[in-house]
């Protein structure tokens, strides 16, 4: 029993490492694409790997107090934990042991750790930044939670692995609940804090908000954290609505299925990421009140429509996937 436990742990470690690499790669691609849109050359795709290496190698790191260290620790640890609970490419790591509600709350751990660390930095810009981040969270969580609720009601399950199973043999989320998928994508934009909603990290107003006091290895680890969170958010959308990239049934085709599914999953998250980046490149930044009013107006209406659709289909029409 111990041996397959070790293999399982090894695979998890591999997947996590790959996720980190993909994350950094995506950041590089994003910078390249936005540069191209703004008619300039932009840094090479692997630029982020270089930055990471430089930051981690720095000798002098500024530190305020012991709470300041919470940010990198909880940040990185937390994001890896979320990735562990998120099926990537159909490979169910820990999500068998915990359901979507647990995942929702684990999402909060890195965010809270990061907020604590930046709060402890004593820099007022950091405080204001965290306030904006939390207000933004309250705004995009409204549609996002309604969407998740409609998924749970429609698929009548709260566990992610079962959800993937049902999407595989019935219909993808996006096909069954297109309206909810739309709302989820709008909410995703806020979750990833991409351009129209990158209010917390607004460089001009509050000097990159919560990140203001972090430098050296802190900034390096936090970059890893943001890379991981990109993969998390895109993969979450893919798992919920695009069947988690499962094309071949792993029980039938064995390891080949896992390999193929992983590639499909990669492609899908890349598509989702591209949507976000293109929106990011074009849009100016909202003020925080606008963002809040925006999210609690149209996306919420769409999400409620999706909820009503899911409710009607599952309760009245008795559609059981």
């Amino acid at each position: 029993m111990v041996t397959d436990w070790l293999i399982h742990a090894g695979l998890v470690a591999l997947y996590l490492f790959l996720a980190m690499v993909i994350g950094l790669l995506f950041m590089g691609i994003a910078r390249k694409i936005t540069a191209r849109i703004q008619n300039r050359v932009g840094p090479p795709i692997y630029q982020n790997f270089l930055d990471l290496g430089k930051l981690l190698a720095k000798k002098t790191n500024i530190k305020h107090n012991w709470i300041f260290d919470f940010a990198p620790l909880f940040g990185l640890g937390g994001v890896l934990l979320i990735l562990a609970y998120l099926p990537m490419g159909g490979y169910i790591m820990l999500s068998g042991q915990g359901d979507l509600i647990l995942l929702l709350y684990i999402l909060a751990i890195p965010a809270l750790g990061f907020a604590l660390g930046s709060g402890a930095s004593g820099n007022p810009n950091a405080g204001v930044g965290v306030m904006r981040a939390l207000t933004l969270m309250l705004s995009y969580e409204m549609p996002f939670l309604i969407v998740i609720l409609s998924l749970m009601i429609f698929y009548n399950t709260a566990s992610l692995s079962v959800l993937l199973q049902k999407q595989m043999n019935y219909l993808w989320g996006i096909a069954a609940l297109p309206i909810s998928a739309l709302a989820a994508d709008i909410a995703l934009q806020g979750m990833m804090a991409e351009k129209p909603f990158d209010i917390p990290i607004a460089p001009h107003e509050i000097a990159s908000g919560p990140l203001v006091e972090f430098g050296g290895k802190y900034l390096g680890l936090l970059m890893l954290y943001s890379a991981g969170s990109i993969v998390v958010e895109t993969s979450l959308f893919v798992d919920l609505f695009l069947g988690g990239g499962i094309v071949l049934n792993p029980t039938v085709y064995g390891t080949l299925a896992y390999f193929v599914n992983y590639l499909v999953w990669l492609a899908l998250i890349f598509v989702v990421w591209m949507i976000a980046i293109f929106v990011n490149a074009v849009f100016p930044r909202f003020r925080i009140e606008q963002a809040f009013k925006f999210y609690w107006k149209w996306p919420t209406v769409i999400a409620i429509a999706g909820l009503v659709q899911a409710y009607v289909m599952s309760v009245f029409l008795g559609v059981v996937p």
Binding site: L56, K58, K59, T60, N61, I62, K63, H64, N65, D69, P72, L73, L76, G216, K217, Y218, L221, L224
Partner: peptide, 9 residues
Amino acid sequence: MFMAKKARV
């Protein structure tokens, strides 16, 4: 990962 380098308070 974090303990790799020391930091000055």
